[in-house]
Design a protein around this nucleic acid. Structure first.
Length: 235
DNA sequence: GCGACAG
DNA sequence: ATCTTGTCGC
């Protein structure tokens, strides 16, 4: 029920072995059912790296819901302290994301993350991990597959096919745009798969990726440093 | 030992 | 993810 802070504020400077052990220990605490109220602010989360990868730049872009108007952006630049290791992405990106979240004027009601939720070897992809430690509802939206198998997805927008691994459905491959490569949607925390897919489809009315993630991605991968770090609209 | 492997 | 310019197509 509660996200007992202390033990959830675990250290990040771990060895890959210790990180995997921690994932196995935390995964059971991820809530796979729906537990979120009315949505007003939905945020997109993404990370980018600067020359050489020495600096991790995390971006959180908050949009109004359901109108999808940009409300606020928060950016954090942190020295990169963990390498990219398949399955351990959260240990590389979450520290910077947490800093960005701290910079928001108002916390969001939901997080749409660039990466997997429970569609992960130990069921703790970055979206699930981030949702768990912030206790915010979250959804994983991956641009490609990490684990799991699935059949062909219909060519029309809205088509889906289950993503399964070790005899369990861990996500859904969703076509957000007719004729365009589908995305991998999975439960992050407090958002079941059905709602997760509905939300992603609603958040992506025109492009392959949800609007909040697109904006965060654009800012995160911009060569030039971000201009305004917060307050898209001050009023 | 040989592939697979989010971003 | 990042290094990098233009190019083909709707």
């Amino acid at each position: 029920m509660d996200a007992s802070h202390e033990d959830l504020h675990h250290p990040w400077g771990l060895t890959p072995e210790a990180a995997r052990a921690l994932q196995t220990r935390l995964a059971p605490r991820v809530e796979r059912g729906d537990r979120f109220g009315p949505l007003e602010r939905v945020a997109g989360v993404d990370v980018g790296f600067e020359q050489g990868g020495g600096i991790t730049r995390a971006v959180v872009s908050v949009f109004s819901w359901p109108h999808l108007e940009p409300l606020e952006d928060a950016v954090a630049r942190v020295p990169t302290a963990f390498p990219y290791v398949p399955g351990l992405l959260s240990f590389r990106e979450i520290p910077a994301v947490l800093r960005a979240l701290e910079g928001l004027q108002v916390p969001p009601d939901l997080l749409l993350c660039d990466g997997q939720g429970i569609a992960h070897p130990r069921r703790l992809g970055i979206a699930a991990h981030l949702g768990l430690i912030t206790d915010l509802p979250s959804v994983g939206v991956g641009k490609s597959r990490l684990v799991g198998r699935h059949g062909e997805v219909g060519v029309l927008r809205g088509s889906t096919v289950p993503l399964a691994d070790r005899g369990e459905v861990i996500g859904r491959v969703l076509r957000t745009r007719t004729g365009v490569r589908p995305v991998y949607v999975s439960t992050g925390h407090r958002v079941a798969l059905d709602a997760a897919c509905q939300l992603v489809l609603q958040a992506a009315p025109r492009y392959r990726l949800p609007e909040p993630i697109r904006r965060a991605d654009r800012i995160a991968s911009r060569r030039d440093g971000p201009r305004r770090e917060a307050a898209v609209q001050k009023r």
